[in-house]
Design a protein around this nucleic acid. Structure first.
Lengths: 184, 184
DNA sequence: AAATAATGTATGTTATAATGTACGAAACGA
DNA sequence: TCGTTTCGTACATTATAACATACATTATTT
């Protein structure tokens, strides 16, 4: 995920140049120093809420216009550029391929669990659901006092607004795809 | 206009309590210290863009949800609570009764101009229009190399995406209503 | 070409956002 | 009643946003 302040940087600069305004002029309109405007455009600063608000008002544009990221139609994510989030002393590894973005209502991970690795997850928000497909190994999921043992090729869908656990109950590495859906 | 960070404060606290989360829990979800979460909720801090982003992502909510202000159906603005913006050494005074809010596309001022007071305004964004009604005194507007002299009760509408000037050409105080419309 | 103005960047200082730790109050169980 | 836990706030410290000033570079004018 690209850093949010770089998106702002690009948007602000594009808008300013489209309107043919100088840093000085934007500074006058917004009441924010031109130094700060310049730093924001160069991605050197993550401005405070009040500063962003001043700029949006000065330019008579919406807050959203400044921080909206025009998503490309297609985006390839390479394994090497996804940074792993280790849990359970590294035996449970999450790869956030498609992290939450508020234009969609879900996020999608790949998870690897070493033998005996496990994770206890708290209840997510009311209405949240998970969709899991096992690609390698074996996975045991506990939810609602029930145990489900999934083998390679199996899948499960369950309401995740209650505590639940993942456990590699097999002898080999487990790989799975996990999608979490958040209702609006 | 209520300060933006107070809106965020109210929204964040409401969301957190609705989800029955502690400061600690929100801190874990977002990666922002619970001290900071607390300060934001109390309106003691205007957080940076990256901090707001972390919170929005941690709670799986949109940026907009955090900063949206549910407007009351009715709002009375009293003369005394509108703070004047002086120009031309105080001879030209702007009262921003309805400043820009990005859910509407216009803002509305009341303006008072003393005898001989004037203001040169730069071109606004392409497509911007102004709607002026004179309530007291006399007003001369120059735009597009033309002069228009308005008396009490007169009104004018003109495209404001070019330089223009306001001038009290009468002998008494001039009062007028000014609405500026910004195309989306 | 020299002078002037306009624009964006670099520098130093101040204000405050952000964090970690510690503390006090309320809720809970032994 | 006494720990024990959970929760929110207060305090001290560090990181950095925000500003004012000065500087370098390029247009524009004379």
């Amino acid at each position: 995920m690209e850093e949010i302040h770089l998106i702002l940087a690009r948007n602000l600069k594009a808008i300013r140049e489209k309107e043919k305004l100088s840093l000085e002029k934007v500074s006058q309109l917004s009441g924010v120093s031109k130094t700060m405007i310049g730093q924001i455009e160069r991605g050197e600063s993550s401005p405070t809420l009040t500063t962003i608000w001043k700029i949006a008002n000065g330019l008579k544009i919406s807050f959203t216009t400044l921080i909206n990221n025009p998503q490309p139609d297609t985006k390839v994510i390479l394994r090497d550029e996804v940074q792993v989030l280790p849990e359970d002393n590294g035996k449970y590894r999450v790869y956030p391929y498609f992290p939450f973005q508020d234009d969609c209502r879900f996020e999608m991970y790949t998870v690897e669990i070493d033998k005996d690795g496990k994770l206890k997850a708290d209840a997510h928000r009311e209405g949240t659901e998970e969709f899991i497909t096992v690609f390698e190994g074996e996975l045991t999921i506990c939810v609602n006092d029930s145990e489900y043992c999934l083998k390679k090729g199996d899948a499960i869908r369950f309401k995740a607004d209650r505590p639940h656990t993942y456990f590699n109950s097999g002898e080999t590495l487990t790989k799975l795809s996990m999608t979490i859906y958040y209702p609006s």
